[in-house]
């Protein structure tokens, strides 16, 4: 087992990234709490970041990590605004259940 683990390759990191991404996707589709839904999207960002850094290391090019910085930036901005909106929505319906917003008409 130690030998198996002694040759960590790009594939390992990609598997981890894929698994994290899929778990994030499943969480997004499954949870009803709006905040947790957004948290799962953050998880998906995370997975993408891992993949990108792995590739950057694999090809010895720093641009991948630079891009991860930008991902971080965008994630932060998006989180801020999303949370603000969630709070507004919570005030309207007094619940965080995403199914409260399922009427297909203006409310």
């Amino acid at each position: 087992m130690i030998e198996a683990l002694s040759h960590i390759s790009l594939t390992h990191y990609l598997i981890v990234s894929a698994a994290l991404f899929v778990i994030g996707l499943v969480g997004f589709l499954v949870r009803r709490n709006m905040i947790i839904m957004f948290l799962c999207t953050e998880l998906m960002f995370q997975a993408a970041a891992i993949a990108m850094v792995a590739f950057s290391r694999f090809s010895l090019d720093v641009s991948g990590q630079v891009f991860v910085i930008f991902i971080l930036t965008v994630a932060a901005a998006e989180a801020a605004l999303a949370l603000g909106l969630i709070v507004l929505l919570y005030r309207r319906r007094e619940t965080l259940n995403s199914e409260a917003w399922s009427e297909m008409r203006e409310s």
């Binding site: 949870r31 947790i36 965080l96």
Partner: peptide, 11 residues
């Protein structure tokens, strides 16, 4: 826990 937290949706 709120109900919507406990029950997952179409797992």
């Amino acid at each position: 826990e709120a109900e919507y937290d406990v029950n997952p949706r179409e797992p």
